[in-house]
Design a protein around this nucleic acid. Structure first.
Lengths: 201, 201
DNA sequence: ATATTTGTTTACCATACGGTTAAACTTTAT
DNA sequence: ATAAAGTTTAACCGTATGGTAAACAAATAT
């Protein structure tokens, strides 16, 4: 039997879609089956249970995000270059996957054990190199003193929050969809400048 | 009949608790009734439906948050003072209400119409004064040029994100609960410095 | 060609869930 | 003291939900 996409893949795609927009609790197996254009029983045939299907989706989605983080952490450019690079790339990526950050953050909050499984996975981001590099650039007088963890969280915060809190930010700053996109687009450069102005000597 | 707390209040408290930790979809009416120590039918007697109970909770919770924002926006201190003040107070507040930011962000994402109702409410934060003030301080040469909306979102992002993404940040920076609390506690000052270093001339 | 494994559909089940009803109990007003 | 209004409980209802069993179809192996 030939398919453009295997049934298993179709299910995963549909499940990704539904789980990302409605979360574990809000998603319905029937809805996922409908979206995949197949019978509900097939979901259980391939993934056994809602929980396991969800975990498959989560791992798949997280594996899209992790490389984004690893880039900034492990390449050989300077901290300043990394920040500019990451801020630009991450924002572009998120504009294409708007549900992703909320999905990850949410379900990680719903089930804290979940992240333990992820940590053991290869490819889970490691800050070691980034920390050493920050400390070195501080010693070399390139950067003003700052704790590497704090800097890292600041970088994440400034880049991720506009997507996490989109409806709230839209309402507070009184922007419609179009101007919000322009606003976020500008942040690709503005956020990098903001960070670098703060840490560069 | 005398009560330490009216039944209606007991229900709202229990509902706040359950809805904040499990969200609209994850929460069960029976669980809320159990937590409140009353019969399930009472939930409907006082609040008619899950949806209406949820809305009552949401408005109540949002009304805790809004004053925090209004403070920074509308008092008469300088931008620098506002940032230091807000960063300190907001972090303290959030440490006492850890589920709050996720709850708000989440449910606002789940139902974008919801925020329209909030916007019409008095007390919904308004950025007008803040914007004028930022522009004035830039003209006066106190601050380097920056768009007030961008600055505002940066302030929010740096303050809220550590609570929104707590499990992720804990895992990435390899902190246990104790060291995470210390980390966030430090941010009360570090974040303010970070922002001010970036925008002050 | 036939048997066996794999994939798919239909019909169904047990339970959980939000919500309702009707009656009992309690408080307040007359 | 009695009626009216307000509050609370237990029992129940219809439906949606995750999941299963068994029949059936298609592909693969023998």
């Amino acid at each position: 039997m030939k398919k453009e996409q295997s049934t298993e893949q179709q299910i995963l795609e549909a499940a990704k879609n539904i789980f990302q927009s409605k979360g574990m609790d809000g998603a319905r197996m029937q809805e996922i089956a409908d979206k995949a254009g197949i019978n509900k029983a097939m979901l259980h045939y391939y993934y056994r249970s809602k929980q396991l299907l969800f975990e498959a989706v989560f791992k798949n989605v997280f594996s899209l995000l992790a490389p984004q983080l690893n880039t900034i952490l492990n390449d050989d450019s300077s901290i300043e270059e990394k920040i500019r690079h990451f801020t630009n790339d991450y924002t572009s990526f998120m504009m294409k996957h708007p549900y992703l950050p909320n999905f990850i953050i949410n379900e990680l909050n719903r089930n804290e054990d979940f992240i333990i499984k992820l940590k053991n996975n290869t490819g889970f981001p490691n800050l070691k190199k980034f920390k050493v590099q920050v400390d070195n650039e501080i010693k070399a007088g390139v950067l003003s003193p700052i704790d590497a963890d704090q800097l890292f969280v600041n970088i994440l915060a400034l880049n991720i929050f506009p997507f996490l809190g989109k409806p709230l930010v839209k309402a507070l700053t009184k922007k419609d969809e179009t101007s919000y996109i322009a606003f976020v687009e500008k942040r690709k450069i503005e956020v990098a400048n903001f960070i670098i102005q703060s840490i560069k000597k």
